[in-house]
């Protein structure tokens, strides 16, 4: 009888435990600590940024190649957006406020040639294999309403570990498409294979698995709003 009593107690306890765990899992989205930026870059060190000497080069298949100093970049018409940031490894940060320059603003200055269909973003710094981090986007992706060349984050200049002074933000795609420490934007006719794409990760890095090319701001992942100045 004692053993039977013990077994009944155990069963009841396990049932209660199972129900508790089930409830906890059901109520888990998202956990309070999960909204945390992780710095999972492949560069050996954070590239140094000197506002006095830093330059952004915009070249390739364009009529007027361009070199911009940091202060000239800040002087261009700016745009801001609040959007979620999501990594293919699973973590996400909601409602990040970005401010910067739309690629279209630069395109109006450099005038891409008709055959230019892609942009390649070149990052400063290098990996342990002495490889530069590059990322390629179709023009249609780089000019999505929630794609931005950002120099401010959460109302402050971009912190070094987040890509200071300039990074790409492609809110509809996983984070590896949002290159940090951008120093050169090159227009090209063909797609250049990016760092992770060379290693087998998808060129098509849309977070949403639905239709893409027609996706507008109202359908963008976590997109809260835009401002143009």
């Amino acid at each position: 009888m004692g053993l039977l009593h013990e077994r009944m107690e155990r069963r009841r306890f396990l049932r209660l435990l199972g129900a508790g765990v089930g409830l906890a899992i059901a109520a888990c989205s998202p956990l309070p600590f999960s909204d945390r930026f992780r710095i999972n870059t492949v560069e050996r060190a954070v590239p140094r940024f000197d506002p006095a000497t830093w330059e952004l080069v915009v070249d390739g298949l364009v009529e007027r190649p361009l070199r911009l100093s940091y202060h000239e970049l800040l002087g261009l018409p700016s745009a801001s957006q609040v959007s979620d940031f999501r990594c293919v490894e699973g973590w996400r940060v909601g409602r990040v406020r970005w401010e910067g320059v739309r690629l279209e603003t630069l395109m109006r200055i450099v005038k891409p040639l008709p055959e230019a269909k892609y942009v390649t973003l070149h990052s400063a710094g290098s990996t342990y294999g002495n490889e530069s981090y590059i990322e390629s986007l179709a023009l249609s992706e780089a000019t999505l309403p929630d794609s931005l060349l950002a120099y401010h984050m959460q109302g402050k200049p971009l912190p070094p570990k987040h890509g200071a002074p300039l990074r790409m933000v492609v809110a509809q795609m996983f984070g590896y498409k949002s290159a940090k420490w951008v120093t050169r934007i090159e227009f090209s006719a063909a797609e250049v294979t990016g760092y992770w794409e060379k290693r087998g990760w998808a060129t098509d890095a849309y977070i949403s698995k639905g239709p893409r090319r027609k996706m507008g701001p109202s359908q963008a992942t976590g997109l809260e709003g835009f401002d143009e100045y």
Partner: peptide, 13 residues
């Protein structure tokens, strides 16, 4: 990706 995200959160916790 939502499954992966929740798994990461729970894994850490």
């Amino acid at each position: 990706i939502d499954l992966v995200g929740h798994s990461l959160d729970w894994h850490d916790l």
